[in-house]
Amino acid sequence: MSRSGFPSGLAAALPIVLGYLPIAFSFGVAATQTGFTPVEATALSLLIYAGASQFLALALLSSGAPVLITAVTLIAMNLRHLVYGPALMKAAGDDASTRRVWAWGFGLTDEVFGQALGALARGQRFSESYMFGLGLPAYAAWVGGTAIGALAGGSALDGSPAIGAALGFMLPALFLALLLSLIARPQVPVIVVAATVTIAGTFAISGTAGILAGIAAGAAAGVIRR
């Protein structure tokens, strides 16, 4: 088995970079369409660095949801990241090392985790240098793509409705793909409850209420199931 270093990580990051750039661009466009400045949009990507919850932040903040409820909802949404590090260290086996995790750990997104775990499953040995190589370009692409999208602004796509539609569909496509990657048989009731309550809450009260109630009901369904 080969131990991979920084250059191998950089090479493995290319598909993530190519994927992050357009998604981050569409986040930047969406943020400016929502009324945030390019600096604010870029700050969200720089500080949070979690795509799905950043789109949720836009929806909640622009609808006037209270700050603490918005923050708690975003935090709850990212609880899934708790299991990534331990799962990666378990897969790394005897090569597991966390001496510099304080520096590369923030880059452990869904896609970086998936790519690193896949490399270990293919027989590659774990190294923290590889994690740096994998994480840095992905983070740069996310923050840079957001800045470019925010500077281009919402009107940049007025003359290209098909491209605008494609970028607009990137968000549901991202959520659907993430959902497919997370689906396991025990989570099916969680997903059904969350989806049903979201629809009911949206039509009965508001879009924000539907989102908050959907997440809460789905998580509760997961705790209750035996």
Binding site: L79, A194, V223
Partner: peptide, 25 residues
């Protein structure tokens, strides 16, 4: 319960956001 909560929160949030993002379309 904590393990089940941690396991359920991610799928619940993502399912909710997929539905919420697709409803206007």
């Amino acid at each position: 319960p904590l393990a089940r909560f941690l396991a359920a929160t991610g799928p619940a949030a993502i399912a909710t956001l997929f539905v919420a993002s697709i409803l206007p379309a």
